[in-house]
């Protein structure tokens, strides 16, 4: 049953919105600065939302989003259109989050020396509800792969196929990561 479902979704009808987005990417790749600006404006919101979901802090999310925008600008020419542009953006965003968090670990180690450079690292903002906050914190503490899979599927509400494309793994692996995440959070949830 499931297989046939996948067979249908794998070859979607050409959607006018996607076609338009593709044209925009193509124009931006050919050096049209206006097209690039439009492209970034279309995607900024989503990038920021993703970044926020992954790190749970508006300041960091804004910085990551900016980092991603810069990377997009620098790397757009190298985008080979083998995957959907939005998947590509996701990949860049997730990489940026990972880099950011690793750098954050380093920043923690040199927190004192850095204090004079970026003194205002504000505390994470309040989540809507306390239980929800607990859930988010638990998910963000998961191992990277599990966290990414869970957030892509549940927070970003993507299909397993899309998540697999973004993470560069097989679809079954996504299910496996979600399953593993569920298992490791069993005590908490």
């Amino acid at each position: 049953m499931h297989v046939s479902m996948m067979g249908l979704t794998a070859a979607p009808q050409p959607n006018p919105a996607t076609v338009l987005a593709e044209a925009l990417v193509r124009r931006a790749q050919n050096g049209d600065a206006d097209a690039f600006a439009e492209l970034i404006e279309d995607h900024y919101e989503r990038i920021y939302r993703t970044a926020w979901r992954w790190c749970g802090n508006r300041d960091d999310a804004e910085d990551i989003a900016q980092e991603v925008c810069v990377k997009l600008g620098a790397a757009l020419a190298g985008f080979d259109r083998r995957s959907a542009f939005s998947s590509w953006v996701y990949r860049i965003t997730l990489n940026a989050v990972r880099d950011w968090q690793r750098a954050g670990a380093r920043r923690g180690r040199y927190a004192q020396s850095l204090a004079e450079i970026s003194p205002t690292d504000q505390p994470p903002e309040q989540e809507a509800a306390a239980t929800s906050a607990q859930l988010w914190a638990a998910v963000r503490r998961l191992p990277e792969k599990q966290r990414d899979a869970v957030l892509l599927v549940y927070a970003e509400e993507l299909s397993h196929a899309e998540a697999a494309d973004i993470m560069g793994v097989a679809e079954a692996t996504i299910s496996f990561h979600v399953h593993a995440a569920r298992k490791s959070l069993r005590g908490l949830l």
Binding site: A28, A33, F36, A37, I40, E41, Y44, E45, Y48, R58, A61, E62, D63, A65, Q66, C69, V70, K71, L72, G73, A74, A75, L76, A77
Partner: peptide, 20 residues
Amino acid sequence: PRPRAREAAFAAARQAYAES
């Protein structure tokens, strides 16, 4: 996101794009 962060991101992106 705050509008200012948004603007900064756009400006940085456009610059990176121009550079690339």
